[in-house]
Write a protein that binds this DNA or RNA. Structure first.
Lengths: 212, 212
DNA sequence: GTCTATACACCGATAGAC
DNA sequence: GTCTATCGGTGTATAGAC
């Protein structure tokens, strides 16, 4: 892609059209893949003409990055909300294993492999997300762990996240075998850590912030 | 993509050039993504000119599918070999969590969402692979399970596979936090099912080989 | 079997009118 | 703020010479 140095006229990023363009970007990406996210197709979706895209975004990469940032922020908000529920671990699991937009996640994951902007943004997002999860869930997991050296909060959270995500990917593709069994297993594990009527044992509110 | 009805001259699929074209297809996809797999770029990689690609493959879709089929067959062979080792579950884990070609897997996963040929092939491959894994590992997992209704062989195999794959994806992208801890957890689980010096309880040697 | 020449479509991006 | 016009580049695919 061409590196432009922006001598062009530009519109305000808070208008209605930029948002419509980001919506269109997501729609095209979900339905036709990242390769189909072109100025022409996105514009058509948003009901404006191709050249007007460049009034709001310097390059297609800028539009892509803006749409991606909007999305990661929404995921962060969603997870944060889940982690504030009565049973945060169960709530987190249900949120993560909801296959909403799994197709979009796959596209961005593949895209991150060869688009530097998206890759850096993905790394930063991933680290922020995991920090948030560990902050909220570590203490409870540690209390329920038979051996925190082996069954560590970090590992439990990652395993849950991974299983949730790949269940979503497979379901989107049309693979459903074994999903019920896998959910039964995960939910059994969750109940060991976070029983139905229980509350976490009293602990100082500030959990350890240490992390690589 | 255009649907062609093949009135063109075509070369033999067992020659050296088709294999070189499939190699080139994988290389381009790994390094630049599925969108970059064009006749021009693949040909350049393989050291031939653009138009010669069409002497061996009717369309770019045909080349893509051929490369994908070759790859899934190799994965099947690799997994089958791992499952024949002394500690099949551990061996399976090590093979699956080796991030070789995780980038390629991500590309095909995203591609499967909007390319019908790749999606159908992926579903068939996924089902075959899982059948193979369950056939080889179910009995041993069932023996070690505290409650096969909850900790079912199917679920254990899927959880292991999912964690292995996403560890590979993250490592490829540059996310490494928590991976060590996650491996410790998984390997602890594996030891519960398949202890170091142990053999599976006596069972008829011929496990069910039923497979599509 | 591999080459040159060529068709036609689509893409990113710019210039400038209204 | 959105339009028309337009450039240079790249894509799939075909025809036919060597």
């Amino acid at each position: 892609m061409r590196r432009t140095v922006a001598k062009r006229r530009m519109g305000p990023p808070d208008a209605a059209t930029p948002a419509a363009l980001m919506d269109a970007t997501e729609a095209v990406m979900r339905e036709e893949g990242y390769a189909a996210v072109t100025s022409r197709r996105v514009a058509e979706r948003a009901g404006i003409n191709q050249q007007t895209v460049y009034y709001y975004f310097q390059t297609m990469d800028d539009l892509l990055l803006a749409a991606y940032r909007r999305r990661t922020q929404r995921v962060l908000d969603r997870v944060q909300q889940a982690l504030s529920a009565a049973r945060p671990l169960h709530s987190f699991w249900h949120t993560s294993s909801d296959p909403m937009d799994a197709a979009l996640t796959m596209e961005y994951l593949a895209l991150a492999n060869h688009n530097d902007l998206i890759r850096l943004e993905t790394i930063e997002f991933g680290e922020r997300l995991r920090r948030l999860e560990v902050d909220k869930l570590a203490e409870r997991i540690r209390q329920a762990s038979p051996d925190p050296q082996v069954v560590s909060p970090f590992a439990v959270i990652m395993a849950i996240t991974y299983v949730a995500h790949l269940l979503g990917f497979e379901a989107t593709l049309g693979l459903r075998g074994g999903h019920r069994e896998t959910r039964v297993l995960v939910e059994w594990c969750l109940r060991q850590i976070e029983p139905a009527g229980a509350r976490a044992k009293t602990m100082p509110e500030r959990t350890s912030q240490i992390q690589g």
